[in-house]
Simulated scan of single mutants.
Amino acid sequence: MKLVVVDYESGNLRSVSRALETCGVAPLVTCDPDELAEADAVVLPGVGAGPSAMNALNERGLVQPLRDFTASGRPFLGICLGLQLLLDWTAEEPGASCLGIVPGQVIRLPDEQNDKSLKIPHMGWNSVALSQEHPAFCGIESGSYFYFVHSFYADPQDREGVVGTTEYGLPFCSAYAKDNVVATQFHPEKSGPVGLRIYRNFVAMAAGGY
Rank of each mutant, 00 (worst) to 15 (best):
D40L: 06
V43E: 01
L44E: 11
G104S: 07
R74G: 09
M54P: 09
A49Y: 06
W89S: 09
L36E: 08
A71C: 06
G100F: 13
D32I: 03
Q64Y: 07
P51K: 00
A26K: 15
A56N: 13
L44C: 11
C31I: 01
L36M: 11
G100S: 12
P27K: 05
V102G: 00
L99K: 07
A37F: 01
Q105D: 14
P45V: 04
R74H: 08
G46W: 03
A56Y: 04
A41I: 09
D88L: 06
S52Q: 15
G61H: 10
G95Q: 04
L77H: 08
C98K: 02
T30C: 01
L87T: 09
S52R: 13
P45R: 00
D32H: 03
V106L: 03
G48E: 08
W89M: 10
Q64L: 14
P33M: 01
A37P: 05
V63E: 05
P75A: 06
V63C: 02
L57W: 12
E38R: 15
M54K: 00
M54Q: 04
S97I: 11
V43N: 00
C80M: 01
C80P: 11
A53V: 11
L62I: 05
L85D: 03
G48M: 02
S97N: 15
E92Q: 03
F69E: 12
V43W: 01
R67T: 12
G61P: 15
G50D: 14
G46N: 03
R74S: 08
F76E: 08
L62M: 02
G48C: 09
S72G: 09
V63Q: 01
G73I: 11
L87N: 07
A37H: 03
L86M: 13
E93I: 04
Q64T: 15
G46F: 04
G100R: 10
G95N: 03
L44G: 12
A49I: 10
P45F: 01
R60M: 09
A71L: 12
A41W: 08
I79E: 01
A26C: 14
D40C: 06
E38K: 14
R74D: 12
D34N: 06
G82C: 10
G46D: 05
N55G: 14
Q64S: 13
L85A: 10
A96E: 15
L99G: 12
P103Y: 02
S97M: 14
G100N: 11
P94M: 07
E59R: 13
N55M: 14
V106S: 00
I101D: 07
C80Y: 02
W89L: 13
S97H: 15
D34W: 00
E59L: 06
E59I: 05
R67K: 15
V42N: 04
P65Q: 03
G104A: 11
A56C: 06
Q64C: 08
N58W: 08
G50L: 09
G78E: 05
G95K: 01
G73Q: 07
G100A: 10
L36I: 14
P103L: 04
L87H: 10
A39C: 13
P45D: 04
D34G: 02
R67H: 11
P33R: 00
L99D: 14
R67L: 13
L44V: 15
P75W: 06
N58Y: 08
C31G: 15
V106P: 10
P51R: 00
D88K: 01
T70R: 04
V102K: 00
Q84M: 03
M54S: 05
Q84T: 02
A26W: 14
A37G: 05
P33Q: 02
A91T: 10
V47P: 07
T90W: 02
